[in-house]
Nucleic acid binder design. Structure first.
Length: 334
DNA sequence: TAATTATGACGAC
DNA sequence: TCGTCCTAATTAC
């Protein structure tokens, strides 16, 4: 999926555009008809992200829990108010699409018209009105896109206000919970650096890791140990720490574990702000722009099996760990 | 047209 | 450890 950063970004979109508004909920696909009927007509009162899970609170103690899984995605359309902390103009968040774009980053095909006529929403301060450009096919014909647009594909849930619509497709979880159930789910999750940002969370993560015989490469992916890390961030965090993925948690030096926590906090913040999993640092100018534009240039090891390590030249290795592909440098991470 | 792939997670053995 | 679920894009044939 969409790792933790995407979910925080999506949540901010809901905070900005839906919280405080009465929502019309439906399930165009039909598979969430009951839940949608329950939520329909209620005012959204809260939007929270914990790791990879999002919770949308509605009047009447209803919470919609959504987990995107590996290929879920939210599409936003209409007059979207961009969150000042999100430097993206795209309406779609979650999975990747074609055209080499990334749905949780700026989409070259989505031009933004803001109040100043600038092609950007990166300015801070008052929210700006944005609108997604018409798609290629619509560009030819109709002058104005109808609102709301016809749902495309398998839309599990559609949430609609007077001005904005959000479509959810492909989630691994989508259900209505009561407050106690929400607490139960959240209570089982490990700390999320954007929520639990103090020494207490760092200590909790550190002590859990240092108690376990489990390989650190598995612990980082365990949402009960730490929230929000997925397969990309796992590989990159381990490389950045020059850590062998097979090292049992309890044998990782305490300082290294603490540095892992801080590094995750760092990468998560960058991810939320930019919408991209930029896991390389030390890039400047053109190299940085190239990396931001091309996902193949953003990572140290992820999806680079057989290619020379960017640091030592050793071929990047690929193996299965936790039923997922793990990329690492056997030399740097010896 | 079919197979493959993907940034997840769960339950049955 | 395996099978299963969710969807869409890309690649192979």
């Amino acid at each position: 999926m969409p790792e933790g950063h995407s979910v925080h970004r999506i949540t901010r979109q809901f905070e900005r555009n839906f919280v405080g508004h009465v929502v019309h909920a439906s399930s165009p696909q039909g598979r969430f008809a009951e839940g949608a009927a329950d939520l329909d007509g209620r005012r959204m009162v809260d939007a929270r992200a914990v790791g990879k899970q999002m919770f949308l609170g509605f009047e009447g103690d209803r919470w919609l829990r959504v987990h995107l899984g590996m290929y879920g995605a939210w599409d936003f359309a209409g007059d979207i108010l961009m969150d000042a902390t999100i430097a993206s103009s795209n309406g779609r968040m979650g999975q990747t699409n074609q055209r080499g774009t990334f749905l949780d980053g700026p989409n070259p095909d989505a031009v933004v018209f803001d109040g100043a006529g600038e092609n950007s929403v990166t300015s801070i301060g008052a929210p700006r009105r944005t609108r997604l450009r018409m798609s290629e096919s619509e560009k030819e014909g109709a002058a104005l896109e109808a609102f709301p647009p016809e749902p495309v594909g398998q839309v599990r849930v559609r949430l609609l206000t007077d001005t904005v619509v959000a479509d959810l497709r492909g989630p691994t979880a989508c259900e209505v919970l009561d407050p106690a159930q929400v607490e139960q789910v959240v209570g089982r999750l490990g700390p999320d650096p954007l929520l639990d940002d103090g020494a207490e969370a760092e200590d909790r993560f550190t002590s859990v890791v240092r108690r376990k015989p489990t390989p650190i490469g598995l612990l980082l992916m365990d949402q009960n140990v730490v929230s929000g890390i997925g397969n990309v961030y796992r590989a990159e965090l381990l490389f950045r720490a020059r850590l062998n993925p097979h090292t049992p948690g309890r044998l990782v030096p305490e300082e290294t574990v603490r540095e892992l926590w801080h590094d995750w906090a760092r990468l998560l913040r960058v991810g939320v702000e930019t919408g991209q999993m930029m896991t390389m640092d030390g890039l400047e100018g053109e190299a940085w722009r190239a990396a931001m534009a091309n996902r193949d240039d953003r990572h140290w090891v992820y999806k680079r099996e057989g290619l020379p390590c960017r640091v030592c030249g050793t071929n990047i290795a690929l193996e299965e760990m936790g039923a997922r592909k793990l990329y690492w440098c056997p030399n740097c991470q010896a």
